[in-house]
Design a protein around this nucleic acid. Sequence first.
DNA 1: AAAGGCACCAACCGCACGGTG
DNA 2: CCACCGTGCGGTTGGTGCCTT
Length: 257
Amino acid sequence: MVRAPCCEKMGLKKGPWTPEEDQILVNYIQIHGHGNWRALPKQAGLLRCGKSCRLRWTNYLRPDIKRGNFTREEEDTIINLHELLGNKWSAIAARLPGRTDNEIKNVWNTHLKKRLKHNNHGNNRQQLIDSPKDIKKQQPVKFTAPVTADSPQQSISDASILTTSDNNSNSNSRSTTFTMNTETNEVGVSEIDENFWSEVLSADNSSMTADFQVVVDQFFTSSLEAANDYGSGVYDTDSNMDFWHDIFTGAADLPEF
DNA sequence: AAAGGCACCAACCGCACGGTG
DNA sequence: CCACCGTGCGGTTGGTGCCTT
């Protein structure tokens, strides 16, 4: 038994939105907020399902949407993030203010995939970009490194738990925990799995300590630079990963940036 | 000028997940 | 524990306009 699409109810409109419908939706949300999406169309007087309203608002009508073509810089960011995260469009969009996941997905499918194919014809790295999930099939990397600052000699043969805590406040102490799994891709390079990147990059900043936010931001910047360098053969993935692993686990201090 | 092919992108669909009663 | 509901996400579709023949 297949669930009927929500818009198949009698009288609900599908397809492109008219300017009048847009205006009704914008006016309603500006006054009342969106609250419950399912109840919204009825309250606003729209013959649409809640899902359609939410999509129209988040992908097109939201005031903070950036319109117009993507800059080269934005495209490069998408390419690098896609290399890190795979098809996690919402996580990528979280790093591109004003751009929606849908928009990024469209740009990737229509422009960037072709551009990469053209630029990296016959290159092993391109296989990885086309099918990032292949990484999961690889054997885990076996290496010994500190797990936490508290137990620096522990082995992390397959996974590690990273914890940082706010040292500045005992009473309001918080911690943020991420799980890091490492794998080897098809060209023999050690990589940290995409779920880790997804968790870190899409994490709610308010739940992180200030110190950890610095680490994440610097890690992100470094990863982008590294990804840029990789194409020219300069990037040493293994040493880069070891470096950041030590920073994350407290085995090394965060250097001056 | 007309027809067919192609590219683009807004919108839809199905699924997964978290919250709640 | 379970069912239901609301929401978010990623994959896909279909309409439109441009380009080529």
